[in-house]
Amino acid sequence: MTVEEDLVPEVHVEDVPQEAFTVIGRVPEGATREEAIAHLRAAARAVRGRDIRMVRAAGLGHIGGEFSVIDILVTLYLDSLHMGPELLGDPDRDRFILSKGHAAAALYTTLAAAGFIDPDDLSTFMQPMSQLNGHPARTKIAAVEASTGPLGHGLPIAVGTAIAGKLDGSARRTFVVTGDGEMQEGSNWEALMTAGNHGLANLCVIVDRNRLQQGARVADTNDLEPLPDKLRAFGMEVIELDGHDHGALRDAFANVPAASGKPTAIVAHTMKGHPISFMSDNVAWHHKVPSAEQVEAALTELEQS
């Protein structure tokens, strides 16, 4: 299949199960660690269920990399970020940038779960004149801090907003998620040098390390390893963790800014397509659109996850 054929959408609104999706909201104040993790697990399950139905309905999307990053997004927006619909105009809000903008459906669904987007609007994903473009645009959605899509843009922007926060003496933090394949872009390493040299402790770079890019394993094109060592050499405080472990993620996010005064780089080991058995760690699911039967099977697996 050529790229062109692959990107012609076949819209399947009619055969998508239309379960209700509502605002889930943040982890309640005063929740115990166990309660917080349970809240995030349930939210991530709901976000994945809505995401796969959106991609099926639109006939387009990047479901593999969406499922690898959803636990990171949900933990940030429903727990770790000092950011909510009431804080959109607050200069001291935490910033989040999804540099791997092709996972837009995961971002939109998470933003709906967090109350930034009307959940009913998710059904407009990629439809004519929708605000929910195939890649997130800051001019279309107030909660989107940076327009992304071409790879290697989000991290330099995050460095800029972190420098601005430092100049202002603000306590705000900037989080940015890159894909691991995306780290092949040289602009990211330019930005990491800047972050390290400026001692941007208010910056946290999360690499969604699912080991797969669009057409191959990252190791088989232009390998990143030893990635943690490289990040350390660029002046980062490096944390490696399971990117599907909500407890580990919230602990790591809570440690930003690092006591060392360095920017934090989290290598989040994830699985593309997680946790669906027939998608997980399978390069074919970068932007494959599931059949109606595959949606049903995935939703069943999600219920049991």
Partner: peptide
């Protein structure tokens, strides 16, 4: 580092 330079500029604009 020109790509970084323009991206950092955009981030500074985001930061006010």
């Amino acid at each position: 580092a020109e790509q970084d330079m323009v991206g950092v500029g955009a981030g500074l604009a985001n930061g006010g």
